[in-house]
């Protein structure tokens, strides 16, 4: 049996009240939204917060007007007709239907980093003397590494980075808005720039981009990304006016590949241009051997996936490849 540890449960009604509880309780408190990441982690004793601050009764986090409330479920984000392509593709491919009914957009952005030596039960981790990320001193993926290399595994973050989205963080001193990319540090342990007493309240997405998200995983459901490629374009006729490409699941943070975006500007999306942009993207994909599938394969297909994303944006019918690689067809 994997029981949850004991905790004190708090259920604030507003963001302000949640922030107040976080500020008062300090690091022993943690937010819980859908619980689909935090509760499995608590069962494996990755986190054992003394106080759980639930966002479930905070109605203001469930708003969808202009911005996306952090408390919307992934199923709600997928169902919303105005959700841009990349975000819809990403949210629709998270986990399973049941989990998308429970898990929230805010929880997905704040998802803990993952690693084969970390996402294991307490007994398993104890048997290897734990690891750098939690309770141990060695990173078993790269034993010489001083830094934890656990992988950022959120599907929606690269999509939102490509879409040039911003998140709002509310803390005791007020509100701040930052680009989604700045929410992340390239550190498997300290992976968020969010302060412990801040609540991520909303996501603002400019509507002017045409965008897609491609995900590599073993099975057509359940699996976390082993590679995520998000691409967003603004077109001027058949010439690229602006381009943003982001990668997920190849480092401790999702990040944008500025060079590829710059390269595409002012060009037509010919096969040659797409191939060269895809190479620029793949050059930045340097995953570590700490997820499912061969490391070799995850590197090998990075340029293919970047190419698929750009071809789909060009208007090619990529349905067959979507089905073959991820068993997903955007509706």
């Amino acid at each position: 049996m994997l029981r949850l540890p004991w905790f004190e449960y708090r259920s604030p009604r507003s963001v302000a009240e949640a922030v107040k509880i976080l500020a008062g309780e300090g690091p022993q408190a943690m937010l819980v939204a859908g619980g689909t990441d935090l509760l499995p982690n608590m069962k494996r004793r990755h986190q054992s917060p003394k106080v759980l601050v639930s966002l479930r009764a905070v109605d203001e986090l469930r708003k969808l007007n202009g911005s996306y409330g952090a408390g919307l479920t992934l199923a709600e984000v997928v169902a919303h007709p105005g959700t841009p392509g990349a975000l819809r593709h990403a949210a629709a491919q998270v986990a399973t239907a049941q989990i998308r009914n429970m898990g929230t957009l805010g929880g997905n952005l704040c998802l803990d980093t993952r690693c084969t030596y970390y996402n294991q039960t307490e007994e398993w981790r104890k048997a290897i003397d734990y690891c750098l990320k939690k309770d141990g001193s060695v990173c078993w993926v790269a034993t010489a590494s001083k830094r934890c290399v656990a992988v950022s595994s959120t599907d929606t973050a690269p999509a939102l980075i490509a879409l040039d989205a911003k998140v709002t963080l509310v803390g005791p001193g007020g509100e701040r808005e930052i680009p989604v990319e700045s929410l992340y540090n390239n550190d498997g342990i300290d992976y968020l720039s969010r302060k412990p007493d801040e609540v991520l309240s909303a996501i603002v997405i400019p509507s002017s981009w045409k965008s897609v998200y491609w995900k590599l995983r073993r099975r057509g459901s359940f699996d976390f990304p082993l590679l995520g490629v998000a691409a967003a374009l603004k077109m001027d006729g058949d010439v690229v006016a602006d381009a943003r490409i982001a990668l997920g699941a190849v480092a401790s943070r999702p990040f944008r590949i500025e060079k590829a975006g710059e390269f595409l500007k002012g060009k037509r999306l010919t096969d040659e241009v797409i191939a060269e942009a895809a190479t620029l993207v793949a050059n930045r994909a340097k995953p570590m051997d700490n997820t499912d599938m061969d490391l070799y394969w995850r590197k090998e297909v990075a340029d293919d996936f970047a190419g698929y994303a750009l071809k789909e944006l060009r208007g090619d019918d990529m349905g067959a490849i979507r089905l073959r690689t991820a068993r997903y067809l955007p509706g």
Binding site: L2, T36, L39, P40, K43, Q98, I99, M102
Partner: peptide, 23 residues
């Protein structure tokens, strides 16, 4: 017990959810 199988699926307010991950 970790959200990885669906055996514990129940309906909450009509929606399928995983009872192993619901408080």
């Amino acid at each position: 017990e970790l959200g990885e199988c669906g055996a514990c699926t129940v309906l909450v307010d009509g929606q399928p959810v995983l009872s192993c991950l619901a408080l």
